[in-house]
Amino acid sequence: MTDLFSYLIRRLGWMLLTVWAVYTFSFILMRSVPGNPFSSERNVPPAIERQLRARFNLDAPPLQQYTDYLVGIVTRGDLGVSIKLEDYTVNEVLAEGFPVSASLAILALVFAITLGVTAGVVSAVYRGTAGDLALMGTAVLGIAIPNFVLASLAILLFVFWIPLFPAAGWGTLRQVILPALCLGAPVAAYIARLTRAGMLEVLGREHVRTAFAKGLPKRTVILKHVLPGALLPVVSYLGPATASVLTGSLVLEKIFALPGIGSHFIYAATQRDYTLAMGMVLTYTVLLFVMNSLVDISYAVIDPRVKLQ
């Protein structure tokens, strides 16, 4: 228990360090990329541009901008005002979009894990059969077909030909199912393949053969002795999977007109909305860090040989 506790404390320290490093890196990067947030088709006179810059504290020397903004974040949790979405602070943008992205991501992940692990186990147990081939074929399709193609096909299929779901929008359960399925599909496919590979790996180990030799029922062996070990690569993949679900939702948010934060992410970058982009980057950093920590803890739980460090 103290293990876990001290692990968490250390992890927190690392997280702060990471966030700081990411902040610094992004700050430098954003300001060295050509273009600025006030580029527009009508050129702004320099004096007025200075007024605008002053509003966002962009007229200060870079080092002061760096510390001012950092102090604002640390002391007040204030990510500033969005430069491009003028009526909003970055915190408000996140507060509006995050629940949408999060619930989409949760549904997609749950769907992906359930389906992926099941498919992976089944196809490993019935290795070499037609069922295995079909499942793995479907899994590859899931990986091979880009998100946006899959979503477009799914709309044609499940909105028009078999009218099950509404075309787009957000606000009801029916509206969220189709995007969640499309978002989860590639992840499910990855998980299925990783599970299968892991299962085959473990099935060949001595202790599993011993377990079979002892005459334990197949189900017990697979669930108790094989699956925990086989899930290691899957668990390891969950961190990146979260990341890919969150960022990958960009395309689906567009196709299904969902009010999540994925689309802000690209816009902030291309429109040079420094504050919004920074807010997004830091949010993602914290989120992924937490997810990766959870993954590491799960690791230690599933595999007793791994110690938390």
């Binding site: 477009s152 709309i155 909105v159 028009f160 509404p166 075309a167 787009a168 929008g169 567009k254 196709i255 299904f256 007109a257 009010p259 689309s263």
Partner: peptide, 18 residues
């Protein structure tokens, strides 16, 4: 006033009456 950007998305929503 819906912030729908995708051209095909908007058309789909038009066809389905949204």
């Amino acid at each position: 006033c819906l912030s729908t950007e995708g051209q095909n998305t908007a058309l789909n929503m038009y066809v389905t009456g949204q």
